[in-house]
Amino acid sequence: MISLREANPFAAFLWLMLAAGIAMFCLNPVLLALSLAGSALYLAVRNPLAARRALPLYLALFALSALINPLFAHNGATPLFVLNHNPVTLEALFYGMAMGGMIASSLCWFRSFQEIMTSDKLLYVFGSALPKLTLILSIALRYIPLLRDQAKRVRDAQRALGLFREENLIDRLRGEARVFSVLVTWALENGIITADSMAARGYGTGRRTRYALFRFRGRDAALCMICLALASVAIAAAASGALRCDFYPRFRLNGGGALGAVGYACYALLAFAPGILEWEENLRWRALRSRI
């Protein structure tokens, strides 16, 4: 197998979205714990530095969320103590913890998503469904660094003509508005060159096809199939109520029986596979390197 980073972006996108989505929309403590552990493992293997920086933050969010909910939600059958004439309940605390887990794990999934789904990969994923929008995105993405550089040039030019003052905040705001205004004219007026260049290369003459660097190989198909199979079992288990969990009035986690167990197992695979695949690849490379 290959890691999600090396896989076809479509497979990687599907996998991450399903892993994050199922946990996000099923309030089940076991699923959330699996999701949190899986996403943290993936981020840690993928980019240890980012993980070291981000994970404490997510943990703090988790704690904050767990503490805030009991202050607002007062239903629940097991009061712990009374604060400002309102009971603070155990159930509300559990609910807050579940929410915190959900938020922390989805942030963690999206942090990894950000790492591996670069803009060209996202354009690839949506390109077949939305060719025109992705073309606009691609053009806009090309323009942004250009505009950033041009803004610097404009600022220098205006400054050296003595037309850009920066003694105080108002002057500064006016000056930047001036730079931005020059930039807007420049971009709009010269945009016609880009449009002409598109027309000259036959844009709009017929049905467009799409070229992509990424290929969809057998292993990508396998990844997609596995991912869909795991996800559908987990979703089926959730939909059937086997993974049901009630927080109020009293915390009760459905045992779920065989279907529940299978559902948990499938989701566990779904959540841990990205990290494990990445890890396996790291190991393989280390082995290869030592042999070279």
Binding site: S119, D120, L135, S138, I139, L141, R142, L146, N190, G191, I193, T194, S197, M198, R201, Y211, L213
Partner: peptide, 11 residues
């Protein structure tokens, strides 16, 4: 600069 349409050389 302005005749380039997309963000990647291959595209």
């Amino acid at each position: 600069e302005q005749q380039i349409v997309t963000d990647k050389v291959w595209h």
